[in-house]
Simulated scan of single mutants.
Amino acid sequence: MRRILRLFLVVAIVGLGVTYLVVRPRTLPADTLSRLTGDAGRGELVFWAGGCASCHADAKATGDDKLVLKGGQSFPSPFGTFIAPNISNDPIAGIGAWNELDLANAMIRGVSPEGQHYYPVFPYASYAKADLQDVVDLRAFLATLPADPTPSGAHEVGFPFNIRLSLGGWKLLFLKDGWVVDGDLTEEEQRGRYLAEALGHCGECHTPRNALGGMESARWLAGGPVPAGRGNFPNITPAKLDWSKADIVEYLTSGFTPDFDSVGGHMALVVENTARLPEADRAAIAAYLKRVPASE
C-alpha cells in the first residue's frame, strides 16, 4: 500500500509539473524589440485604431479627458465582472513604469510584468497579431499622456475563473496565429484586415463565442449576444451588412447610417476612434468587410 501511495504521489507531482509547464505564462524573448525605436506620432494612430480610450478612459469622458486612462469601466460577462485597469502614465497606479517589452508581453502574449496571465477581456487574442513596431510606437505615445493616481479596481470573478493559471489552457485553445480572412487580398484589403482583425479587434464583439469564451472563427463577425446579457452585437458580414463601401466609410467617419440613423451604445466610442484615422484606413476597413465570408 505504501508503494502504491508513493507511486501515486510521484505521478501526481509529475502531472502537476507537466501541467504547469504547459499553462505557465510565456513571455517574449528579452531582445525582441532591441532594434525598434518608438515614434509617438505614429503611436497616436495606433492608440485610436486600438480603441484604448474606449475602455480605459472614464465612460463619460469627452475631449482631452479621453486621454486620461484611469480605468474604472465595468464589463459584465458570464464569467464575472471585469474592471478596466488604470493604464495612465502614473508609475504606481498605472503603467508609467512599464517599458516597451512590458507592453508587448501584455498585448502579444497576454502576460503582465509580474508574470501573470491577463484575462482575455483584454483583447490580446486580437492584439497578438499586431506588428511589434506598432506596439513600440504605442508605448511612446502612451508616455506622453497624463498620469492619474486612481487605483485600478479589482475584478469580480469567482471560482474557478479566478484561477489565472488556467488561462494558459485557454490560450492554447484560442490564441491562434494567422488571419481569419485569408486568400488573394489587395493591399487595401490587407490593411483593412490588419485594422479589423488585430488593432481594431472587431471580432471580439461581433463574433459569437463558445462556452469557454473563445471566438468561433467559423462564424467570423456574424454577431452574437452581448456578454452583459442585454441585446446582441450585429452581424457585419455581407450576409446582413449590405451597405456600399462608401456607406461604411461614412458610418466610420460620422456615425450616420445610409438610413440617416445614428450610431449608439459602445459603437459610438468606436466611431470616435475610427473618425481620427486617415480616410484611407476607413476605406481599407470597408474593403475588408466586403471580403469577409457571408455568415448567417
Rank of each mutant, 00 (worst) to 15 (best):
R139E: 09
R139K: 14
A140F: 05
A140H: 07
A140D: 05
F141E: 12
L142N: 07
L142S: 05
L142I: 03
L142C: 06
A143Y: 00
A143C: 01
T144S: 13
T144V: 09
T144Q: 13
T144A: 09
T144R: 14
L145I: 03
L145T: 10
P146V: 13
P146D: 08
P146H: 10
P146C: 08
A147T: 13
A147Y: 14
D148M: 01
P149I: 09
T150F: 04
T150H: 12
S152C: 04
S152V: 03
G153N: 01
G153V: 01
H155T: 05
V157W: 02
G158Q: 11
F159G: 12
P160E: 12
P160W: 13
N162D: 15
N162C: 04
N162P: 07
I163L: 14
I163H: 02
I163R: 11
I163Q: 12
R164Y: 06
L165E: 01
L165F: 04
L165A: 11
L165M: 14
S166W: 11
S166H: 02
S166T: 12
L167M: 09
G168Y: 03
G168V: 03
G168K: 02
G168T: 05
G169Q: 00
W170Q: 01
W170A: 00
W170Y: 12
W170F: 13
W170D: 00
K171C: 08
K171V: 01
K171P: 04
K171G: 06
L172N: 06
L173F: 14
L173D: 14
L173A: 15
L175Q: 13
K176T: 13
K176E: 14
D177P: 04
D177G: 08
D177Q: 15
D177W: 12
D177C: 03
G178L: 07
G178S: 08
G178I: 07
G178Y: 11
W179R: 05
W179N: 04
W179C: 03
W179K: 04
V180E: 07
V180S: 02
V180T: 14
